[in-house]
C-alpha cells in the first residue's frame, strides 16, 4: 500500500496503449458518424493524420452538437490548417449558433496566412454582422496587414457597429497612420457620442507617450 512505483527507467511508457479499433482513414471516417460522442471525439482527434479529410471534418463541425467533439474537431482542423479548412470554416461565420461562430473565429485567428487572401472580401460582405465577426478574427490575427484592413473599414464602412468594432481593435494594433482616419469617423456618424468616445480612447492608446531610446 501507499506510494508505489512501476518502472525504473525514464523513457519507457508507463502503460501500454490499448486501442479497441483500427485507426485507418476509412474506419475513422465511419467512427465520425458514430452515435457515441466519445468515439466521434477520438475519430476527430486521430483524423489529424489524414489532412485530406478536412472537408468532412468541417462538415461534421457544422452539425456537431457535443462540446468535447466540437473542440476535438477544431483542434484537428487548426493542426491541418490548409486552405481547404479556411475555405470551409469561413462560411460558418454566418451560423446562427454563437458557440460555433466563436470556435470558427478562434480557429481562423490561428491560421493567419491561410485567412489573409479572404479578408478583404470578408470585410466587404453585405451582412454587417458577418463583417463584425470578420473584425473579431482580426482581433487576434498575427498578420502585418491587419491594421491596413481595419483602416479601410474605418474609412469606408457605413455601419456604426462595424466601425466601432474596428476602432476597438485598432486601439491595440493601430499606429499613428490611422489617426487621421479615426479622427474623421465621428463626423461620418453625426458625431455620435459613443463613436466619439471610442475614437478618443483609441487615439489616446495609439499615441501613448513613450520616449525614444
Amino acid at each position: 500500500m501507499s506510494l508505489i512505483k512501476k518502472s525504473q527507467d525514464i523513457s519507457p511508457p508507463v502503460l501500454e496503449e490499448n486501442r479497441r479499433t483500427p485507426r485507418d482513414r476509412a474506419g475513422l471516417l465511419s467512427q465520425l458518424e458514430n452515435d457515441a460522442p466519445d468515439i466521434r471525439r477520438w475519430a476527430a482527434l486521430d483524423l489529424v493524420e489524414f489532412p485530406d479529410t478536412a472537408e468532412v471534418l468541417c462538415a461534421q463541425l457544422a452539425q456537431e452538437t457535443q462540446t468535447p467533439v466540437r473542440e476535438a474537431l477544431l483542434t484537428t482542423l487548426i493542426k491541418i490548417g490548409n486552405p481547404i479548412v479556411v475555405n470551409r470554416l469561413i462560411p460558418l461565420l454566418r451560423s446562427e449558433d454563437a458557440a460555433l461562430r466563436n470556435l470558427v473565429i478562434e480557429a481562423l485567428q490561428q491560421l493567419p496566412e491561410a485567412v489573409a487572401p479572404h479578408m478583404k472580401e470578408m470585410l466587404r460582405d453585405p451582412d454587417a454582422d458577418y463583417r463584425i465577426f470578420s473584425i473579431n478574427v482580426l482581433d487576434n490575427l498575427k498578420h502585418p496587414q491587419a491594421p491596413a484592413w481595419l483602416q479601410e473599414v474605418v474609412e469606408k464602412d457605413d455601419n456604426i457597429n462595424v466601425c466601432a468594432a474596428a476602432v476597438e481593435v485598432l486601439a491595440e494594433v493601430g499606429s499613428a497612420e490611422v489617426i487621421p482616419a479615426l479622427s474623421t469617423l465621428p463626423e461620418r456618424f453625426d458625431n455620435d457620442p459613443f463613436m466619439e468616445f471610442c475614437v478618443q480612447t483609441a487615439i489616446r492608446r495609439i499615441q501613448g507617450n513613450g520616449n525614444r531610446i
Binding site: N140, A171, Q207, N209, N211, R212, I213
Partner: peptide, 22 residues
Amino acid sequence: SPAAPTISEEEFQKFRDFFYRK
C-alpha cells in the same frame, strides 16, 4: 547619451490588456 525609454500610462494599459488576453 540617448534618453532612457519610458512607458506611458496608455501604453501600459495597452500592454496590460494584450498580456492578459495572451
